[in-house]
Design a binder for these strands. Structure first.
Lengths: 214, 214
DNA sequence: GTCTATATGTAGATAGAC
DNA sequence: GTCTATCTACATATAGAC
């Protein structure tokens, strides 16, 4: 604990470029494996193989399997929340300021990010695993509840007649449908034969907006 | 393989009452544990403890972990599909024959069954785990696709203007929202403060019907 | 069919050389 | 920080007594 260097984010010490690259490779590999097999189905050895690193390195950077999982979930949560809130603020400037814009501000950022960096697709699948397992409700709430509440307030102001419970229900339906679109794109194609990807996001926004009563 | 008795369902041999009860206890316990922790998070020992049976008995009746998982998923699938198709046929007799009735016929049976037997709630959580993990897409398709296609045809006939892809999208959104309502009832309460359970199912049907454009 | 004891593999984690 | 070798625990599965 001696000789610690004060960095902007209060991290332990300054990491070399090489070390930082290794960290990122470890986290990216963990993200992929966790997203594919879930927490229990993933093994440190799988992650090590995917990262092209020895097993010990995964523990060194990850600090144990559960800590690694937490880190990987947390890593992109802040970026995603920021993007959503910025998109929400942008709607305040726009004229119509309708329900669709609010839902779009919540839904679109994830797909926009996924388009420019496919690792966001893995992240979304990981979040889907998190959302289905009671064991991770704590960390899900920690990372996503603040933004959820902001959007629910916004929805409430657009739909003053709806009870808080109905807003909450609709919001949960919306989130689950969004995750389903990410994780089941292949299944949708299999069922429907269609192909257009970006159009589906429009359809999702329209579906949920209509569901809320717009 | 000798001395096999031909039963209605081509099962191996006639089982004693005692044995059948043990089987059911094993499957119920497996259902609960798999629904709580997923396939990889569950252990045969957990299941044995929950069933009040020794570890060997789980293997004897289950035939290995993966076979047991398959059996447990399959066990209630037929009942659920039957209930859904019967509910769908019942709507053909009714006058208005609207989109809501079709969606209701798909959604309601699960909640009706869960109300009279809480083990259906576990089953729904298990299906949620199945739906999120690519590893189980085969068995999900095997058990649920035939009914899914029937309902999609019915939806298509009510919404002739929509493309097959949009029907498929809306159906996936609907299924995910339905599973979210089962698995996130607590979360919805936490977010919204509300309580009424049966009302939520009405809200879900309304949400999806509106989403489809009704 | 039921239960005990055990075989075998592989998981997460760590100690210590480099 | 990186990597090898190893410790310990617990998983699935089975063999065989009852």
């Amino acid at each position: 604990m001696s000789n610690s260097q004060a960095t902007g984010k209060m991290r332990k010490r300054a990491l070399s470029e090489r070390a930082k690259q290794t960290r990122e490779r470890v986290f990216d590999a963990a993200e992929t494996i966790f997203a594919t097999r879930g927490f229990d189905g993933a093994t440190i050895r799988d992650i090590a193989a995917a990262a092209g690193e020895p097993v010990g390195t995964i523990h060194h950077h990850g600090g144990g399997k559960e800590a690694l999982f937490n880190t990987v979930v947390a890593r992109r949560a802040e970026t995603l929340s920021q993007a959503r809130l910025e998109a929400l603020e942008a709607t305040w400037a726009s004229k119509p300021m309708d329900l669709r814009s609010v839902l779009s501000a919540f839904i679109r950022p994830l797909f926009d990010l996924a388009e420019e960096d496919p690792r966001w697709q893995n992240y979304a699948k990981l979040v889907a695993f998190v959302s289905v397992d009671d064991r991770w409700t704590e960390i899900a709430a920690q990372h996503f509840d603040p933004t959820a509440h902001k959007f629910m307030e916004e929805l409430q102001s657009h739909l003053p007649k709806l009870s808080r419970q109905r807003i909450a229900e609709g919001f949960v339906f919306t989130v689950s449908a969004m995750l389903a679109l990410v994780t089941s794109e292949r299944r949708i194609s299999a069922l429907g034969g269609g192909t257009s990807h970006t159009a589906s996001v429009d359809h999702l926004v329209a579906f949920c907006a209509a569901g809320f009563g717009d």
